[in-house]
Amino acid sequence: MGSQKRMNVELLSYTPNARKIAFTAIRTCYSPSEPSDLFEGAEYERYQEQPASDGQEGSDADRLFRHIINSGHTSTLEHISFTFAIEGVSRVLLAQLTRHRVGFGFSVQSQRYVSDASDKKKGGFQYVVPPKIGAIGEAAAYYEQLMGTLQEAYDKLVELGVPKEDARFVLPNGAATNMTMTANLRALLSFYSKRKPGRGAQWEIAELAEELRRKVVEAEPWLDAYFEQA
Rank of each mutant, 00 (worst) to 15 (best):
P221M: 05
R168W: 00
V9A: 01
E34G: 13
I69Y: 12
S193G: 11
R213P: 05
V217C: 04
K194M: 06
S75D: 05
A85E: 02
A22E: 02
N178P: 03
V108Q: 09
G88E: 04
E34C: 10
Q202V: 10
L77T: 01
L77V: 01
V92D: 14
E210L: 08
E228G: 07
S59M: 09
W222M: 04
R199G: 14
E138Q: 13
I136E: 13
A201T: 04
L12E: 05
Q111C: 05
W222E: 02
T28R: 13
L223T: 08
D224P: 07
I136S: 11
V92P: 09
K122W: 13
E34I: 14
E138V: 15
Q96E: 15
F169T: 09
E144Y: 07
A95P: 05
N173S: 15
L157D: 00
L94D: 10
Q56I: 08
V129H: 06
R195L: 08
S71H: 11
D224W: 02
E10I: 10
K132C: 10
S36Q: 12
Y143Q: 03
N173H: 09
G134I: 00
N8E: 12
D37T: 14
A139G: 05
S190E: 10
G137Y: 01
E40G: 09
A206M: 07
S3F: 09
R112Y: 05
S13G: 07
E210C: 06
P172C: 07
H67L: 15
V128Y: 04
L171C: 06
R168A: 00
N8C: 11
K164L: 15
R168S: 07
E43A: 12
L223M: 02
Q202C: 08
F169Y: 14
T83I: 01
Y30W: 04
E165W: 10
L97Q: 02
P51G: 06
S33Q: 14
